[in-house]
Design a protein around this nucleic acid. Structure first.
Lengths: 125, 125
DNA sequence: TTGAATGCAAAAAATTTGCATATTG
DNA sequence: CAATATGCAAATTTTTTGCATTCAA
């Protein structure tokens, strides 16, 4: 795995703005100026970074996946339908559900990959 | 809301094959023969059916949404990463998590909209 | 009859691919 | 030096939109 400028710039963009879609990353990487990075290189960089575990992606909603630096404190993503805010909660909060799913269905769940939709405190009030 | 042929055919396709993507629905509706229904009409029919609550959609993975007839027994979707099988579980299995999320974050979760990724019993063995 | 819905074709949006060139290790 | 990664352009894929025509109520 080579360290290249596009990969470094994509990773930098993700630390500046986690939960970015590919499009947002493309824009951010290029907004910074310097040699432009074409979309195809951004897509390939994301793929590479994800493969070595530096980056992960999550599906927050019906749109494109969002990428962020891999976090060893895995977390659940909670997305508000009204305002779009993304809350995070330790993945462990779902441990009882995960255990139940395994017992009931023999299914080993990864609750961090897909967000949970709902409505946040502020929008409810 | 008018009852029209395209809408009836789209709904019929969903009862025959729930969890279909728009593309699959387009194919199924037209495979049946008869007057072809163009993609735009399928998309519009899905939107209309969803609006009146006859149909819902769920995000099973990174691909297109999948549609199915609305079910008053709401359920969680469990998707196996290896084989792609879609298991269902009563939404109530997540009640404790939902309660916890509300208490901790004031977030009212709808756990049925996004599937949970993981690995099914058969693929694990 | 008449407004809602369709069908068609074209546009838009998002992602992928092939290939020659440049670059890392 | 040799294999990997980039940049560019074109091709795909998926979904949306405008508009004249048709059809359900």
């Amino acid at each position: 795995m080579r360290v290249t400028a596009p990969r470094e710039r994509v990773y930098a963009a993700l630390t500046e703005a986690p939960h970015s879609t590919p499009e947002e990353i493309i824009e951010r990487v290029n907004a910074a100026g310097g040699t432009p990075v074409p979309p195809s290189s951004v897509y390939r960089a994301l793929e590479a970074l994800e493969e070595i575990g530096l980056v992960t992606h999550t599906h927050l909603d019906h749109r494109a996946p969002t990428y962020h630096p891999a976090d060893h404190n895995r977390h659940l993503h909670l997305v508000c339908r009204s305002c779009g805010v993304v809350l995070e909660s330790p993945a462990s909060i779902a441990d009882p559900l995960v255990a139940e799913l395994e017992q009931e269905h023999g299914f080993v769940a990864d609750v961090t990959h897909m967000a949970i939709q709902g409505e946040c405190r502020r929008c409810r009030s």
